[in-house]
Amino acid sequence: MLKINNLHARIGEKEILKGINLEVKAGEVHAIMGPNGSGKSTLASVLAGREDYEVSAGSVEFLGKDLLELSPENRAREGLFLAFQYPVEIPGVTTINFLKTAVNEIRKYRGEAAMDAVSFLKMMREKSQLVEIDQALLSRSLNEGFSGGEKKRNEVFQMAMLEPKLAILDETDSGLDIDALRIVASGVNKLKSPQNATIVVTHYQRLLDYIVPDFVHVLWNGRIVKSGTKELALELEEKGYDWIKAEAIS
């Protein structure tokens, strides 16, 4: 589904991604871990098409297409979803209205007719139950005045509504209490299918108790310096990142 090959990205003169290699297949869950500032959000942003970053080398293939050639909106329409580490507020635009626009834009791209209001509301109701988000929240301005946890839950709700092929969750767990974490994780699990894939970016192993990854990668200093299975996450929890840094340097 996703093939990242020797990806380098910079902002201004500063190189942040220094040769990322990663392959994600349909049905898989990958976790990307690593200390603060190692480039996790940058990787997510570059995949989503943020213009601030310049891709200086490498290639990314997504569902057989050259991802880097696509505009950010077309990446989304092709099925790539990013749950933002810091979701943005849009005053005066309700989540409902925002998602109706998004859903219909994506459908248009795929040559499907716009969704009528009744089916849309029905889908809203189902998906909001799935991620246990309060309906009242969805009639409010997008993310405006939401608590940290509400914002994150709204990200997962949007993911449920847009049914992406590849979802990247950037620290969706941070700022959540344990109950919220459980709800969000169970939402993500319910959305899992053999046809789609998930990349979970996280700091903490505790999320991986709920969303069990097939692979765990450690990103440090712009490179994936170690990959393994879920046991690697436990090891990191126990020993921290220093041994990996030491390993990477030597």
């Binding site: 990013l82 933002f84 998602l99 626009t101 834009e105």
Partner: peptide, 9 residues
């Protein structure tokens, strides 16, 4: 960018 990422031009 947030809108773009949701498929909105």
């Amino acid at each position: 960018f947030y809108c773009n990422q949701r498929g909105i031009s």
